[in-house]
Design a protein around this nucleic acid. Structure first.
Lengths: 247, 247
DNA sequence: ACAATAGTGTCTATTAGACAATATGCG
DNA sequence: CGCATATTGTCTAATAGACACTATTGT
């Protein structure tokens, strides 16, 4: 057991130092595509490569708190706490994932609508949103972490109301469909999607309002909705099954 | 960023030491019920309380490897690697979760059929399987970790062939139904379950054999199956929806 | 007027689940 | 024999998805 073993003679300071970091996969939808926040490393190792924002946990700081802080530091936003959904993703601790010392990274997944252009923090040469379809080479094992985050996000759209976290405070059914289409990378049937969304209890609730004008290329004004109180979608919105996912 | 910040003047050895442990939620089905492996702490703090098996990661050791090692040490089994399904659960790092120092724990979830009675390791006063329905008080935040593990296991039965990891090499449809009923704590309709399982591509495959004899209380010999090659169940086996889960 | 879009109606195939029926083997 | 269980059949309600239709608005 951890602490009994500890008391039985282990002194963790006698071990090679273990560093604990948090890395954040921050996703938003911009320019019609799904984008991830990357920062360009200013220092060795992997200087010049792009990487996920992250850093050491600080004394007295809880893990989600550290993730939120790192994200706020990199985006230059302080008051984003209430609009950003953040959840733990997974941990990575392969012995050689950092060439200098043992680093265990706890990754977090963040979603938000319309996050602003990031301001590079003091420890980064650059910071920007990157389309997940054309990614640069990433430092460390951050490609694996990012892939895991994307997979998680895509899956969670199916059975949770997470998509509303990518939309604004009020949104139309079409905008919500756009979120699904962007994250999943598929086209969805507008009519069936519309009916389906409204049939899931607690997913969205009507505001009684409509958009100020019709769509850019015509069409009637759409009703506006806000996120409902459901935490799970029942029934779920399933992606069209792809054979290669099953086996 | 983590390492640039590091190089910019951070020395992790200058930080208060952070210890990284793995804790394992090991589940099996015994005596008709779902059971979890607990060890009784021999040392302070929380001496005498039950806790999840776990311990420090060792230099050069990957995280899943550490989890498998801890599980093997506590169960007294060395050759269980190929029959045990093990996967990462989540990480816990609240600053005060261990009263002595900063400890970040990475939890793992393990499932296996018929795991033997555990042998208490050198650092434990006792080790045994406990029904998840009547749990003792647990050390640290292990009640939260265990609750999370149970929730994950129950959910994964829905859309993965995980249930076969609780059954033996060959099993009947009724035995598989027993796994679902035990983990979910519900009664399932035998006929519908039977047809449903066989309709999911790749979930089970026939061995062409049957049981040697009928059931203990009569009935025909059942056909024997083995796990198929599906990694995801499509369509999924959904639990009867409970209203309180949705909101 | 014309095109694009919001929202609704309808039809079909699939699935979950209730219930029934048949066959087999234990006591 | 009588009962429990394995397996299959049938029927109904709900759902996914294809397709069509109407109404509204921008150009």
């Amino acid at each position: 057991m951890d602490e009994s073993e500890f008391l039985a003679g282990y002194d963790p300071r006698a071990y090679p130092a273990v560093a604990v970091t948090v890395d954040v996969v921050a996703l938003t939808i911009r320019g019609g595509g799904l984008r991830v926040l990357l920062i360009r490393r200013a220092e060795q190792p992997h200087a010049g490569l792009w990487a996920l924002p992250g850093g050491f946990i600080r004394p007295g700081e809880d893990l989600p708190q550290a993730a939120a802080r790192e994200l706020a530091e990199e985006t230059g936003l302080s008051g984003l706490s209430d609009r950003v959904h953040i959840e733990q993703l997974a941990s990575y601790g392969a012995p050689e994932r950092d060439p200098r010392m043992r680093v265990v990274s706890i990754s977090y997944l963040a979603f938000a609508p319309d996050l602003p252009d990031p301001r590079a923090g003091s420890d980064a040469a650059d910071a920007s949103w990157h389309s997940v379809d054309k990614l640069p080479q990433l430092a460390f094992d951050h490609d694996r972490i990012l892939a895991h985050g994307l997979e998680r996000a895509r899956g969670k759209l199916e059975y949770t109301p997470l998509a509303t976290a990518f939309a604004g405070e009020r949104f139309t059914i079409s905008e919500l469909r756009g979120v699904y289409e962007t994250v999943w990378g598929v086209q969805l049937h507008p009519g069936n999607f519309h009916r389906k969304i409204l049939s899931v209890p607690g997913f969205v609730e009507s505001t009684g309002e409509t958009t100020e004008s019709g769509g850019a290329r015509g069409g009637p004004r759409a009703k506006l909705y806000r996120a409902g109180d459901a935490r799970l979608l029942h029934p779920a919105l399933l992606r069209p099954a792809r054979e290669e996912q099953i086996r």
